[in-house]
Structures are given as C-alpha cells and as structure tokens.
Simulated assay, not measured.
Amino acid sequence: MTYSLRIADLPQSERPRERLIAYGAKTLSTAELIAILLGTGQGAGKLSAVGLGQYILQELSQHQRDPLGVLRDVNIQELTKVPGVGPAKATTILAAIELGKRVYQSRPPEKTVIDDPQVAAAALSNELMWQSQERFAVLMLDVKNKLIATQVITIGTATETLAHPREIFREIIRQGATRAIVAHNHPSGNLEPSAEDLSLTRQLLEGSRFLGIPLLDHLILGNGNHLSLRQTTSLWEETPQGA
C-alpha cells in the first residue's frame, strides 16, 4: 500500500475508519489503529496518518525492542520525540492505551460464575498480568463456581515466587470457599510451566482432594496471554478432583 499525505487521498476501501466499520477492528494493522487515533499525518516526509503510525512503530522498535511492548508503557516524552507527534496526538494515544488496560484488567463482579479459563484470567489480570514481579493468587469460589473473592498470597522476585500449599489452603478455608483456582504470572511473558510450577500443582491437587475442596485449574498469566494447566497437562487425570 502506498501512503499519500492525506487519508482522504486513499481509496475508500483502504481508509482505516471505513475498513474498521466494514470489517471490524481486529482486521486493522497496528499502524492503522494508531492512524485512527492520530486523525492526521505529517512529520518527516509529510506522511499520511497510516504512514505516521508506521513510523511511530518503527521508532519504538529500535534496538530490537517489541514495539507493542514499548507502546504499552510509553510516556508523553517518548511519543513527542517522534516527528509529527505533538502533545495532542501523544495524549490521545496514551489515553487509548490506558483505556485498553482498564478494560482488559476489569475484574468480574463478585458472584460472577467462573466457568472458563478466560473468565478466570480476567478476574486475576489486575493483580497478575502486567506485574514486574511474580505473584501467586487464588480465586475462591462457592459450590456453583460463583466468585467469592480473589487474594494475592505471595509476591516474589522478577523470576520466581514461593507459595506454600499451607498458606493457600488457609486462605481458601478462611474465605469459606468450596472450590478454588490458583494462578501466578510470568513477567517474561513465557507461559511455559516450570518444573516447580508442575510440582506445586501436584501438591495442591493432592491437598485439594484430601480436604474435599476441588482445585479447578492453575493458570499462568503474562503479557496479555494465559495458559491453563488443566487444559494442557494430564495432572487432573492423575489426581481427579471430583469436579
């Protein structure tokens, strides 16, 4: 696609707003989404809004950085260093990023039925998803899988956290929960479970069966994604929970 000075100069079928309306936001490239926020282009080479969006991503990707990772935590000074991005455009981008974070991290209200790993991950994202340290948390549920409470049990370093089964079950029992989902984050974004993750899950499954409090899942969260150990391992087949 060749970018001209104005979005109006593009064929209607290639204009970001029109494409979003016709095909949905998911079909747009990151540069096109930024272009909608920018509204207009300019900068070096008199770029269109889409071209300026591409240029912003190019600038953020310097030194082999992930531009989306940088964009997530970008500040006003970094954005306004990009030619063509003044305070108005920069604040619009920052507002959109913050709104996206808040929507993603919004916690389901209490009594929400937690019946899917995606819903469980959303309930814990505020405590776990973008943290720079590993955290271990518990979702506590009633007999109908309705959310009672969430609780961060431990906070570790950038690479590891320790959670003893005793501390986890103490909180579950204290809250009067009859079922639970545990979760922790990997700040690196790599969701592959470690040997320690699998070992702890086995201990928790054994403890859950002994106490009669089914452990429904163990989630790993990081950088906007999640992984369900129940769906990706055979641990629940090895230690059935009766749920």
Rank of each mutant, 00 (worst) to 15 (best):
D217V: 05
S234K: 07
S188F: 12
L52F: 00
Q151F: 01
R230D: 12
Q133N: 15
V182Y: 00
L141D: 13
S208G: 14
S48L: 01
L57W: 04
G86F: 03
I21M: 14
E78P: 05
L128Q: 03
E110Y: 08
L147E: 15
N145G: 08
G100Q: 06
A195Y: 04
E59A: 15
V182I: 12
N223T: 07
T159E: 05
P165V: 03
A25P: 15
T233K: 05
P67T: 06
L139G: 09
L99S: 09
P109V: 13
A88P: 02
P214N: 07
V152E: 02
T80F: 07
E18P: 11
L20K: 09
P87E: 10
P16L: 02
T27L: 03
Q62E: 14
K144N: 13
L94G: 03
L38A: 06
E160N: 14
Q151V: 01
A121H: 02
A25K: 07
I7Q: 03
R19D: 04
T232H: 13
D217S: 06
L211Q: 03
Q105C: 05
D116A: 04
D66Y: 15
A122Y: 00
R102E: 10
V113K: 15
A183M: 02
P187A: 13
L128E: 06
L141G: 05
N126K: 00
Y55V: 03
A95Y: 14
G242E: 13
G86L: 02
G207H: 11
K146R: 15
L227I: 10
L99A: 05
A49E: 06
I56P: 00
L37T: 07
L215H: 04
I7V: 15
L5R: 07
A35N: 07
G222R: 01
E78K: 09
T91C: 14
R209A: 08
L219H: 02
L211P: 08
T91P: 08
D115P: 11
R174Y: 14
Q54C: 10
V119H: 06
W130G: 04
G24L: 08
I213C: 13
N223A: 13
T150K: 00
T91K: 13
V143R: 14
P83Q: 09
L227T: 10
A8H: 05
A49I: 02
E110W: 11
K101A: 02
M129I: 06
T112H: 08
T150M: 00
S188D: 09
L200H: 02
F136Y: 03
L235T: 01
V138Q: 04
Q62R: 11
A149E: 15
G45I: 09
L200P: 00
D142Y: 11
A22H: 09
V50N: 03
G69M: 14
G207M: 05
L229C: 04
S61M: 15
N126C: 01
Q77Y: 03
N190G: 04
P187F: 06
E14V: 07
P109N: 11
L128K: 00
E160Q: 13
I181E: 00
